[in-house]
Write a protein that binds this DNA or RNA. Structure first.
Lengths: 77, 77
DNA sequence: GGAACATGTCAAGCACGCTTTACATCCTAA
DNA sequence: TTAGGATGTAAAGCGTGCTTGACATGTTCC
């Protein structure tokens, strides 16, 4: 999942700590999401979208494509 | 987090198992999300929205309001 | 040089998202 | 009446989302 959070935060001149406070999460959480360590929960994604006044779809984008594996998704059936 | 999944699924005449298969998750996951036991991950929310051809915002809605607790969120600081 | 801030990262711990297996109930069809 | 589908729920297990605390680095400003 790719996101534009760092860009949106930068436009507003906020530090990761500033954003974390506005979202009521830890600074490490903001950093982990920006650096792609993990995706936010759906409720947090809503908070982020509302804070920036944008839709979730305009901030987050599912991975280019988690290519369908060469093996069956339902082996031995 | 409130969602309209059961309604959208019903309109299409799909069982929970049908929907689960289309989303590539277990039937219990669909059931748990419909019955409000937990919220889907952000990637699954995207899958759901795309399957129904709707925006995430038009399917999910953050709780009416998780009322601000009477106690400080940052005690002893 | 030293203080202060911004960012990145690690570790431990807890709660949640999702899995498989299994069982119970309800409803409809034959 | 029995079989089958649809739904609800439970337990155990694994990985992720988020927390606090801590430390390292780079930058800026005195």
């Amino acid at each position: 999942m790719i996101n534009r959070i760092r860009e949106l935060r930068g436009e507003r001149g906020w530090s990761q700590a500033d954003l974390a406070e506005r979202l009521d999460v830890s600074r490490q959480t903001v950093n982990a999401i920006e650096t792609g360590k993990y995706d936010p929960s759906l409720p947090l994604a809503f908070k982020i979208a509302r804070l920036f006044g944008l839709s979730i779809e305009s901030i987050f984008e599912p991975e280019p494509q988690a290519a369908t594996p060469m093996v069956s998704r339902h082996p031995m059936e």
